[in-house]
């Protein structure tokens, strides 16, 4: 089947999509957007997190056909498209040493970015809750929490 939806503001079309295929597979294998990672394919790790109509979801659990006509935002949409400048959350992850192997990073960035859009000044409990669906095997999470706090502080300063 053919599936047409918006990815990071641009209309995209995928042909010959198998009906049982996930949105994650379409993004990675058909549209060449390999930022969203595939680790567990069962909603446990969060490395495939994208926003679907503005809501963070596991792309591995969305059937491709369910994305028809919807808006998807992936990690590729976070940096400034024209200049390549990193978003506040991305820069904070780099500056805080929150990235080791980097496999979990795209999903965490989308989840953290969404948190700061909903709550620009999150408490530590808010941060832990917002990131509770994302697993990281390298960092031990402390630097990731630091990064989100740093991004929140920088967003606050910029306002």
């Amino acid at each position: 089947m053919r599936v047409t939806f918006t990815v990071n503001g641009r209309t995209q079309r995928a042909d010959d999509v198998w009906e049982g295929e996930s949105l994650l597979y379409v993004l990675r294998e058909r549209l060449g957007l390999a930022g969203s990672k595939n680790a567990c394919e069962q909603g446990e790790c969060g490395s495939c997190t994208v926003r679907l109509d503005g809501v963070p979801v596991c792309a591995c659990l969305v059937a491709a056909g369910q994305a028809e006509g919807r808006e998807v935002e992936t990690v590729e949409g976070l940096a400034d498209r024209a200049t390549g400048e990193l978003s506040v959350v991305q820069q904070a992850f780099v500056d805080s040493g929150a990235v080791q192997c980097g496999f979990c990073t795209p999903g965490l960035l989308v989840a953290a970015d969404d948190l700061l859009r909903q709550r620009p000044d999150p408490s530590d409990a808010d941060i832990r809750e917002a990131l509770s669906g994302n697993l990281c095997r390298c960092t031990g999470y402390e630097k990731i929490l630091d990064a989100v706090r740093l991004a929140a502080a920088r967003t606050g300063e910029a306002d």
Binding site: G43, G46, T49, V55, V57, L61, V62, E129, A130, G133
Partner: peptide, 9 residues
């Protein structure tokens, strides 16, 4: 239930 991503769906 699950995580924020799971509760959203």
């Amino acid at each position: 239930v699950g995580s924020p991503q799971i509760r959203n769906r």
